[in-house]
Every structure is written in structure tokens, then in C-alpha cells.
Amino acid sequence: MKPILFLLTLAIGLSSASCRKSASSATATQGDGTSPADKPLVIGVAFETLQTEYWVAGFEAIRADLKQRGWTMLEAVSDGDTNRQLEQVKNFITRRVDGIILVPKDSKTCLPIIKAANAANIPIVLFNRPADKSEARSVAVVADNFALTKETVTYLVSEAEKSGRKHKAALLIGDLGDINAIGRRDGFDAAIKGKESVIEVVARIPTEWSQEKAQSGIVNALQAHPDISFIFTSSDFLFPSIVSALKGAGKYHKIGTPGHVILGGFDGDATAYQMLKEGYLDATGVQDVYFEAKQCIDAILDLRAGKILPELIRDPGFVIHQGNLEAKSAQMWGAQKR
């Protein structure tokens, strides 16, 4: 039993060390004496996932921006595991990073992570997903999901109106634990409000940000309502599932040809750009990933300098469609990846 007693003693010693860690971390970051602007910084970047093009683009944009400034980036991806992300951020704190950029899993589970950074006096900025209101202090750089979706869907509705008939619509909803998904759903609903003579929503498909669920959902919807002629997805990364389902139903046609299903999305990824270029996609709301990356890093600098920032820094984004494709594609991150 002696080794067990030794392990137990060691563990108790370590756990008591944890009680002292907050104070020691805070002292180290505050007491270095250098001004924030004159030394290369080390930034911890913790993403919840790299499973879609958008997150990869965001990750790479941050990496490129930090490299350009001559700063060091420490990276961590938690693969959807909240507790692992907390561990990763604590590792950043252990390494005394100068700032943390975080993509949390959702708006609630990130609160202890933000509190840990607060306790260590390390500025923390959330990329694209804001936290719930709480005593935890953070800044989030986020697209105006509601406004941008509303603008995109309003364009799609105006296209639908041109046909002079009523369209049956399907909406692919994201994970409702994600405030961005809620904003996009609400933006869609706001855009079609009062347009009941043009749009009738016959299917609301919960995807939980899963391509498989989107695929089965849209196939089922097309079977139940073969006359669906208007589809909006809350994220462009679900387009391959939609296209596959439409092809299976013989409904994937270019804009202007008979049987075309009006398609709209959100994000502005490479698939959406290709579909726009080939004339299948009507419009998508583009998040400006480069703007968001730059704002995150600038916000860390500002917070280190003691400036008071708003809790939300908005990325206005823009709608790209067949009418402005040439003019706007240079700003679309998905177009840069092709």
C-alpha cells in the first residue's frame, strides 16, 4: 500500500498548489513591466472544431495575421469537448500567454473558461461565438447573424417574387445551443414575415451542424413535399448534403432554367463560391473572416492596453449574389480558397 500512500500524498500536494495558482498567474502577467506594444506576444488560440471550411479559414487567418505581426501562436483544438477546452486554456495560462482567442462550443459552457482567463488576468476574445451574459469578462467578435441572414433571405424572397407564384420553403437550422444558429433562424423568420403570399415554410430541419442529419432531413423533406422550391441553409457547409438530395430528386437546376430551386446560405465558403460561379446558388451571407481575425487580435492589444471595449464587436458582413458576384468575390474568403 506504500506506493498508493505516496501517490495520495503527491496528489494532495498538487491539489493544494491549485489553490495558489490564480494568484501566482496574475502576478506574473501583470508584473512583467514591458509595455504591451513593444514586445512580440504569445497568443493562445483555442478552437472548438476545425471540421468546416469556415473554422479552418478563421484559424488560418488568425495564424497569418499573428505571423505578420511577428507574434507566436499556440494552438489547441478541443474537438467538441468542453472539458478538454477548459484544460487547454488552463495550459495556455500555465504557459503565461499574453492573450487568448477562443471559439467555444456554445455560449454557456465557455463561462468557466473565461473565468479562468479572468482570474489569471489574461485578455480573452471570443471568435465568432459570443458568451452568455454573466460576470465573466470577455469580448466577442461576431457577425451580425440576424441582420445578415435577414438581408440574404430578403434578397431570396425578392427573387421568388419575380416568379409570380408561391414557393414552398425548407429551412435548415443549426445547433440551437449555438447563439449564431438562433440568430440565423430568427433572421430568416423576420425576412419572410409578411411574405406569406410568396413563401410557405413546409420544413424546418434541425441539423445540429451535422451533414448527415442535414442530408437525411432534406431527403425526407423533399419526399414529403416534392414541390419544395426554396431552400435556405444556416451554414454553407451543408450545401453538399443539399445538392446531393436535390440531384437525387432531379431538382438541381441552374438559375433561370425551369425547375430551379432558389438556394441561399450563410458563411461564404468555397463550395458556395463555386455554386455561385456555376449559376446554381442565388445568394449567401458572407462573414468577413479576415476582418474578424484582425479585430480579435486588435482587441487583445486594446485590452492589454487597458482600453474598455464593447462586449460585442460586429462584423457587418455582406450579401453576395449573382448581381454583385464579380464586384464582391475579392472580399469573399471562400473565393480566395479556390
Partner: peptide, 18 residues
């Protein structure tokens, strides 16, 4: 970097227990 620190040991322990 940071491996042999009490903070890291505590972090390691808190994630290992569950």
C-alpha cells in the same frame, strides 16, 4: 514549457480525476 509547474500539475490532476 510549463510542464514542471504546480499549476500544470494541478491542471493535470483536475482533468485526470473524472
Amino acid at each position: 514549457p510549463g510542464f514542471f509547474t504546480p499549476e500544470n500539475a494541478a491542471n493535470l490532476l483536475s482533468t485526470a480525476l473524472p
